[in-house]
Structure formats: structure tokens, C-alpha cells
Design a protein around this nucleic acid. Structure first.
Length: 912
DNA sequence: AGAACAACTTAGGAAACCTTCT
DNA sequence: AGAAGGTTTCCTAAGTTGTTCT
């Protein structure tokens, strides 16, 4: 039972237990600006390298010892690896502060990394981070006051032009809100569209105003966090310790007790100045309201106390909020600010966020994502336990080695899946299993194998498991949780955060979607020697959970967010990463940035539409293709469509549409029919503007059905072009924009007075519309038709009851006794009033059932969750809930509440 | 310029869990 | 209590985008 069991054992951990009490913390400033290339990944080389699985030493950045202390991955470290106390509740932890931002591969030699930042004065660093970044990244930044502008146009030339009022005081880099208001009217561009394909239109200006003006820049760099500490010797350490202690005093009791886990000790001896982080749960509500529109970072800053605190220099305090039971949740946060010291910076919000003129241009990534990172690595699936059940080959039992049996079991238990109908699956499985069996094995073909004994055995095991008592199940679960506890969290810059996928994927047969050429291939077991760990330099290297084995490599790259990765065994060019959970501040921050970027598009969209409309007839074929592709992405929310290899399923997106995927229907309709992501079918017929129709005609001319429709285009070219129109703009931003603005519009148009349930219906309708636009589908459940039949029967029954009730009512009015019920029993004598009431109730019941049925049928192939998780700005939902007094818990599950913690304190007037 | 590499987001289905009905 | 059905979470595949290499 290899596979299923394995996975079973590993999959049920349900975390969250602690969530409830765990405040969500935000401590970091938004990262953002791309740093320069120099900072980027120092080491990429390290990973291809060693095959032997040896780990090289980590070198200490500070120049301290660079002697390679070979880290014994397997050996050493164990003791420090976990600080027990950390495991628990408090989010606060003190960790020694790490200094260097950049990563070093452990394998390398030890020279110091050149930390450019070190040379800079703190203040300058700070600045850079907060302001400059923005510029580069532009997407989210909106300048609030026109004053700050300045700057080079270089950064955003074209895009700047796009804004209606280029000159308005807003700086080029950041699109200004005001500008846009007007643009709204003009668009002749807007096409008439059909239902699902409508181009989102902006909403009224006024709204825009208010929103924009309040939003300053959305992005803040996190480099703030990066202020370097100077390295100091042992003394420093001592000192730091003392300080730490002091801090403790201030901590809430509960925290303080837990707080200093060994982590710090283990962290290594050479510390630079330490920073202790703490987080407090704050109950108070003060400032929120006005902040809502502000980027998180802004809000953080606001809190005066941080600044004031003398000690603040070294400590980072994070304020966290929790959801109040009332239903309206409010999360408050505040952040640490190590940089408090450079006071110059914040004389007010503006200054803080205003862009500094000094900005460095930069690329997008490679920015520092964290300063300290502590985690415990990953947990592996248990080793295979042979069951000894034999398959039959030509009717006879065959002995298999545990390895062979394991693979056979993976296959046997998939008997009821659709994969068994696919020849490709069987072929791939056979090829890989055959390797395990060896060429000379008695088993020479798959056809003559009968896996039933294993299948049956597996069914029995499943049944046994089901039969366990609730207590037994609970005990098992608890046991598992206990084992996994330490892997569930990481400490990022002193804040405890959940890890997303800390369980290494168990071996199995590859379940590719659609007609994936590799389906059925053996996905081999991952060993520690396949895994590269990324962790803070001063953090203890996680103990390898499998005795005698070692990690492949240890890195200390703080420009990335992954904690571990390994090569995908199915496609060695790909990696599997372990990241923090969606509820983490790191993910929350980037989620917010994503939506801010989409909101920014609102300010550009009109001009972008005007521009591509103009190019529909361009003589430059590339331009023309870009125009048409952009139009389709805008109007239909298509994905960009990267090129794919032959060893992947044959699916397409916009840029990879083939001639055969689009059929013209005169005079101006296009019929799309293709397989998109996950081999989900996209079928849609839309009316388009005539020039688009004609352009498609032209692109299809003289091409065979399988040829590329946009032969001059790829996602790279398209995105490069989009970036000229708006900073940071890429194809996928249109999807986010389209989805969110549709929700916002619909909610505001359709929400009426009424009870909560009615409002939720309105919301779900809007959500459904978005899901349809994005083509988020789900398969119809196997029992769907059965369920519908059942519902119909029930309705019929009720209707029969109704008829009877009416008869009885009639009789009752005439003073006659009720009719006998169908089973011959006599019924209670009811007054006409009572019967009337019953009739009303029954009618209501029938109506409700019919409504439910319609909804069910309606949604049977539509997946609402995907857009809620990925495309709908949660602030729209939160603000709507606040305006209409709908408890947010009705709209977001517990995990979504955690994921969207950053959006909870939005102003009720927020509009996308 | 385009391929390769890297890192991160988005996606549907399965499994687990919770609620309602019988 | 158990079945049925709905909802949420887990799992991992399949996308997009950005950077670096050739």
C-alpha cells in the first residue's frame, strides 16, 4: 500500500490549532524595491554543483570566522536545532540579528560578502529602502502629493505619457491618482461587449479621488529591515543580551516567559548587534480608520510610540491584532522599526513615503526578503512498509522486492481513477516499473498483471481506518501533530510564521492533468540529499530527520523566500519549493502589492485601450498582434500563454493560441475553443470590434490550423510592451484587475437592503460572474445528478402535501374532518388558520428548495473559490461587509481570514 | 534575441472535516 | 449514530514573470 498509505499518514495534519490565539503579525516593511543586480543572487552556482551531497560550510558573513567549518549536516547541529520553547505560542522571539543581506552559499569559500549597504549610512539605507524602491517598482506607487516629484523620466517614460495629465504635478514614476479621474469619460474605445466579456469600466470619479488621494505609495521597501548592524565582538553580544533582557520586561508576561528560547544561544556566537523582536497583541483600536487606505507599511509607521521609544532601535515590535468576535474584524498592526533612529525620515506620512530623488534604478528582484530566518527544515514521509500481498502474473502470484511492490501498489490503488483508462498512463508506468523490476523479471508485460489482491488489501486497510473510533483517530492525529509541530513554523525576522508545505512529497505516480505526456511515471522518493536548505546564517542548521543522511546544500540567501527546495523528479529542470504559508507577512505583503498594481491599472486602462485600439490596424504586424493580444487579454481575461515543451500537456494561452482555436463568425464574432491551464476547456463566443475581427482574419490567413495565431509574439515581447505602458504591468495584472473591478462594480450596483443572507446571495452572484470571466471550473460531482433527482422527488412530495393541505383547509372551513393520510392514519384536526399557516410554510419550503436547486445546477461547474483566493482584492469584500453589516466570517474561511489579515482594517469606503 | 534557469502565483481535485438529515 | 452532503484544507501540478546565460 505504499502510496496511499504514505500519503495518508502524511496528509492529515491540521494545523491551525494555534492560530486562534496567534495574532497575525506584520512586522516587516514592505519590501520592494528592487535592488541592484549586485545584490542578487550571489550564488546560483552552488546548486548545480555537488553531486555528492556534501554540505559545505557556511561562512560567516561578518568576516569573522571564515574558516570553513564544515558543517556536519547530519551530525552537528542537532542540539541547537530546535528551541523547544519557541514552538509555542508567542510569536515573539528573539533572534540574533543577522547582518548581511545577501546570501552566501554555504559551499563557497568564506570571504566576506561585500555588503554594499554597509558602507552606507544608515539613513541612506533607510531612504533607499523606503522610497527609492518605489520608483523602480512603480507599480504600486501612487504619489500623494504632487510635490515630490522630480525625476527622471527614464523610468517610466511611456507610462507617464499614458496618464492623462502627464504634467500634473505627479511625478512620472508614480502615477497619480488625480490624473485619472477624468479619463473615464472619453472612452470610445470601450467596446460593446457581451455579457461575460465586458471590459470593466471604471467607476465614478469621485470615488477614485478619495481613494487615491489617500493612498500614497503602496510600496515600501523592506530594506528598512535591512539596516545593517555593525558587527561587534563578543562584548556586543553580551550587551545585546542585556538589552534583550530589558526588553523582556516589557513583554507581556506570557511572552516573556517563552521568549528566549535557545534560539539565541544556538544562533551562534558572533553576533552583531541584536535585535529583538517582539510582538504584542494590541487590543486597542486607535488609529485605524484613516489608515485603511494606506499601505501596511504606512500604518505601521504611524504608531508614534515606536518612534519615540528610546529603545526602539534595537527592538522591533510588532503589534498584532485579532479578530474580534463581533464579526467585524479589525486587525491592527504596527511594525517595528529598527530604523527609528534615523529620524529624519518620518516627519509625517508624507515625508516618509515621498520619493526620494536619489533612486537607484533597478531591476525587479533580488531584494532582501528577510534578515533572520530560522526553521527546522522539512519532514519526510515514512519509509515504505511492505505488505507482502502478491500480484498475479498470468494468474500466478509473483514475489516482488519491497521496491517493486511499492511501485506496484501505487498503481494498484489507482484502479478506480480515470488514469487507468489512459494508455499513456499505463505505458509510462510500465516503463518505469520495468526499470525497477529489471529486464529479466518474470513479469514481461503489464497486460498480464492482475493487481486485484493489492487493490483489495488496500480497500480493507481503508475500511479499517474508517472503522477506528473517534478517539483512536484523534489520538493518531495528535501524535502526528506532535511529530510535525516543529516543522510547522519558521521565525522570520523574529516573528513566528507558518510554513506552507513542510512535508516532502511522497513517492507516487505522476498525475499530470489532461493529456500529459508524463502521466504515470514514477515520482521517486525524495531524500535529504536531494534537498537544499535556505536559512539565516546564524540559525542552526536543521537536523536531518533521517539518521545517516545529509542535506544536499545549505544556503543563506535572503533575497528569496523559499526555505527548501529539491529538483522535481519528473522534470529535473523544475524545482519544488517549500515556502511560508499564505498567512505569513511575506506572502501578505506581496499579495497586497499585487492588488495595488491592479488598482493602478485602473488609472491607465483607458489610455491603454485607446492605444491598442489604434494599433488594431497598424501596418507593423508585430504591433498589430500585440494590440489584438492585449485586447483579448483585457476583454477576456486570458492568460499570457507561454511556450510549452513537448513533454508537457498541450495547452495554450493568449500568445500561444493556434489558428484552430479561434473561429470567425461573420460579421464580428469570434468563437474561442481551446484548452487552457490545467487542460480546462475555454469556450466562449464574443463579439469584437470589427478591426479586431479583421486582424484575426489576417493572422489566420495562409496558416494551417495548428500554426500559431500570433506568430510574431511571445509573452516576453508582450510583457515588455506592457511595461512601457505602465510600470510593472504584465499580462496577468489584467486578470486581477478585471476580476476585482467586476466584483467591486457588481457589489456596489446590486447590493440592496435586506438581510444578511440576501446580501450574501448578491455577493455570490458577483463572485460567480468573476469565476466565469476567469473560466474557473470544477468537475461535476459524481453524485450531482443523483442529488438533483432526490431534490426533485422531495419537491414533488412537498407539492403533494400541499395539495392535501389545501383540501383539508377546504374541508376545515366547512367543518369537515381532514382526509386520511396516505398511510391510512387519521390526521389531527386543525383549524383553518393552522392549515393556512402550514400551507404558507410548505410553499416557502418548496420555493427555497427550488432556489437551492437552481443555484446548485448553476454552480455545478463553476469554482468560486479560486477567484476569492487569488483574484478578488479582499479589501473590496471587507469594506463591503463593513458597509452592509455582514460579518466577515461569513465571507472568508478561517484560512482566508488569516491570509487576508492585511486587508481587515480597510476603510468601509474603500473602492477598488 | 532567445534559451535556460529560478522563483513565485494560480489551479483543480482529493481528502478531511463539519453540518444536517434520518 | 450514521449517512449524506456541503465546505474547507491539503496537495501538488501548471502557470507567469524576471534574471542570467549563450
Amino acid at each position: 500500500m505504499a502510496q496511499p498509505n504514505l500519503s495518508k499518514k502524511f496528509d492529515d495534519y491540521d494545523d491551525d490549532d494555534d492560530d486562534d490565539d496567534q495574532p497575525i503579525t506584520f512586522k516587516r516593511f514592505a519590501k520592494k524595491s528592487p535592488l541592484h543586480s549586485e545584490v542578487k543572487k550571489a550564488t546560483s552556482n552552488s546548486h548545480g554543483g555537488q553531486s555528492n551531497g556534501k554540505i559545505t560550510d557556511v561562512h560567516s558573513s561578518n568576516g569573522q570566522t571564515s574558516k570553513p567549518s564544515p558543517m556536519k549536516p547530519c551530525a552537528g547541529i542537532a542540539k541547537q536545532s530546535n528551541s523547544p520553547s519557541l514552538g509555542d505560542k508567542p510569536n515573539i522571539v528573539n533572534v540574533k540579528n543577522e547582518t548581511k543581506p545577501i546570501e552566501h552559499s554555504s559551499k563557497g569559500y568564506c570571504e566576506d560578502s561585500e555588503d554594499d549597504d554597509d558602507d552606507k549610512p544608515l539613513s541612506s539605507k533607510w531612504k533607499i529602502k523606503s522610497n527609492h524602491d518605489n520608483k523602480v517598482v512603480a507599480p504600486v506607487v501612487i504619489k500623494k502629493s504632487s510635490q515630490d516629484s522630480d525625476d527622471d523620466d527614464d523610468d517610466v517614460p511611456l507610462s507617464a505619457k499614458f496618464l492623462r495629465k502627464p504634467n500634473s504635478r505627479t511625478s512620472d514614476k508614480k502615477p497619480v491618482s488625480k490624473v485619472q479621474k477624468e479619463r473615464q469619460n472619453g472612452s470610445s474605445t470601450s467596446s460593446k461587449q457581451q455579457k461575460s466579456s465586458t471590459l470593466p469600466v471604471k467607476r465614478e470619479l469621485e470615488n477614485c479621488d478619495s481613494v487615491h488621494s489617500s493612498v500614497k505609495k503602496s510600496k515600501v521597501s523592506d530594506s528598512a529591515a535591512s539596516i545593517k548592524t555593525k558587527q561587534v565582538s563578543v562584548k556586543c553580544e553580551l550587551k545585546a543580551k542585556e538589552e534583550e533582557d530589558d526588553d523582556d520586561d516589557k513583554l507581556p508576561i506570557s511572552h516573556s516567559s517563552v521568549k528566549k528560547p535557545k534560539v539565541s544561544d544556538s544562533a551562534g556566537s558572533i553576533k552583531t548587534k541584536q535585535v529583538s523582536v517582539k510582538c504584542e497583541i494590541k487590543a486597542k483600536e486607535e488609529e485605524d480608520d484613516d489608515d485603511d487606505e494606506l499601505p501596511i507599511s504606512h500604518r505601521f509607521k504611524k504608531s508614534p510610540k515606536l518612534t519615540d521609544k528610546p529603545s526602539s532601535t534595537k527592538k522591533i515590535s510588532t503589534k498584532v491584532t485579532k479578530v474580534n468576535k463581533s464579526g467585524s474584524t479589525s486587525f491592527k498592526k504596527q511594525t517595528k522599526s529598527k530604523q527609528t533612529k534615523n529620524k529624519s525620515k518620518r516627519s509625517g506620512r508624507d515625508s516618509e513615503y515621498s520619493i526620494s530623488s536619489t533612486l537607484l534604478p533597478s531591476s525587479g528582484d533580488g531584494q532582501k526578503k528577510w534578515t533572520t530566518l530560522v526553521h527546522n527544515g522539512v519532514i519526510f514521509p515514512p519509509p515504505y512498509q511492505p505488505h507482502g500481498v502478491k500480484i498475479l502474473y498470468k494468474g500466478k502470484p509473483v514475489d516482488l522486492t519491497p521496491e517493486q511492490e511499492e511501485v506496484a501498489t501505487m498503481y494498484a490503488v489507482m484502479r478506480d481513477t480515470d488514469y487507468m483508462q489512459k494508455d499513456k498512463f499505463k505505458e509510462n508506468f510500465w516503463n518505469d516499473w520495468r526499470e525497477v523490476l529489471g529486464r529479466k523479471h518474470v513479469i514481461q508485460n503489464l497486460k498480464d498483471c492482475d493487481f486485484t489482491p493489492i487493490y483489495d488489501w488496500h480497500e480493507i486497510e481503508k475500511e479499517k481506518k474508517k472503522q477506528m473510533t473517534t478517539e483512536e483517530k484523534k489520538a493518531l492525529k495528535e501524535e502526528k501533530m506532535k511529530q510535525e509541530e516543529k516543522y510547522t513554523w519558521a521565525i522570520v525576522d523574529g516573528v513566528k510564521e507558518k510554513v506552507g508545505n513542510f512535508r516532502v512529497e511522497p513517492p507516487g505516480l505522476f498525475r499530470g492533468r489532461g493529456e500529459h505526456p508524463k502521466m504515470g511515471k514514477l515520482k521517486k522518493r525524495i531524500h535529504p540529499s536531494d534537498i537544499t536548505i535556505n536559512i539565516g546564517k546564524d540559525a542552526p542548521i536543521p537536523e536531518c530527520p533521517i539518521p545517516g543522511e545529509c542535506w544536499k546544500d545549505i544556503r543563506h540567501d535572503n533575497t528569496v523566500t523559499w526555505l527548501c527546495y529539491w529538483n522535481d523528479p519528473i522534470n529535473s529542470k523544475l524545482f519544488k519549493y517549500v515556502f511560508l504559508a499564505a498567512s505569513s507577512s511575506l506572502k501578505g505583503q506581496s499579495d497586497k502589492e499585487k492588488y495595488e498594481k491592479a488598482r493602478l491599472l485602473k488609472d491607465y486602462i483607458e489610455n491603454i485601450r485607446a492605444a491598442y485600439t489604434k494599433d488594431f490596424t497598424s501596418k507593423d504586424i508585430t504591433k498589430q498582434q500585440i494590440a489584438v493580444a492585449t485586447y483579448l487579454i483585457d476583454k477576456l481575461a486570458l492568460r499570457a500563454g507561454n511556450e510549452k515543451d513537448d513533454d508537457e500537456a498541450d495547452t495554450v494561452g493568449c500568445c500561444t493560441l493556434k489558428v484552430e482555436n479561434v473561429t470567425r463568425e461573420a460579421p464580428n464574432k469570434l468563437m474561442f475553443n481551446f484548452l487552457g491551464k490545467d487542460s480546462i476547456k475555454y469556450e466562449n463566443t464574443v463579439e469584437v470590434e470589427l478591426p479586431v475581427y479583421n486582424a484575426i482574419l489576417k493572422f489566420q490567413k495562409d496558416k494551417s490550423p495548428g500554426e500559431s495565431l500570433f506568430d510574431m509574439l511571445d509573452t516576453n515581447k508582450l510583457n515588455t510592451h506592457l511595461k512601457e505602458l505602465m510600470p510593472g504591468l504584465t499580462a496577468k495584472v489584467f486578470r486581477t484587475f478585471n476580476a476585482s473591478i467586476t466584483l467591486d462594480d457588481k457589489l456596489n450596483k446590486d447590493t440592496k437592503d435586506g438581510d444578511v443572507a440576501e446580501k450574501i446571495v448578491v455577493y455570490n452572484h458577483a463572485n460567480k460572474e468573476v469565476a466565469i470571466i476567469c473560466n474557473h471550473q470544477r468537475s461535476v460531482s459524481k453524485s450531482h445528478s443523483q442529488q438533483m433527482t432526490k431534490l426533485n422527488e422531495k419537491i414533488d412530495e412537498l407539492q403533494a402535501d400541499l395539495k392535501e393541505l389545501k383540501v383539508d383547509l377546504d374541508r376545515a372551513r366547512k367543518g369537515k374532518p381532514p382526509t386520511k393520510s396516505s398511510d391510512g392514519k387519521s390526521k389531527r384536526n386543525l383549524t383553518p388558520e393552522a392549515l393556512e399557516k402550514k400551507i404558507t410554510q410548505t410553499n416557502a419550503k418548496i420555493e427555497k428548495m427550488q432556489r437551492d436547486m437552481r443555484t446548485k445546477e448553476d454552480l455545478k461547474t463553476v469554482a468560486l473559490g479560486t477567484s476569492k483566493i487569488n483574484y478578488l482584492d479582499p479589501r473590496i469584500t471587507v469594506a463591503w461587509c463593513k458597509r452592509h453589516e455582514v460579518p466577515i466570517e461569513k465571507m472568508f474561511t478561517k484560512s482566508l481570514l488569516a491570509k487576508f489579515a492585511w486587508a481587515m482594517d480597510v476603510d468601509p469606503d474603500f473602492r477598488f
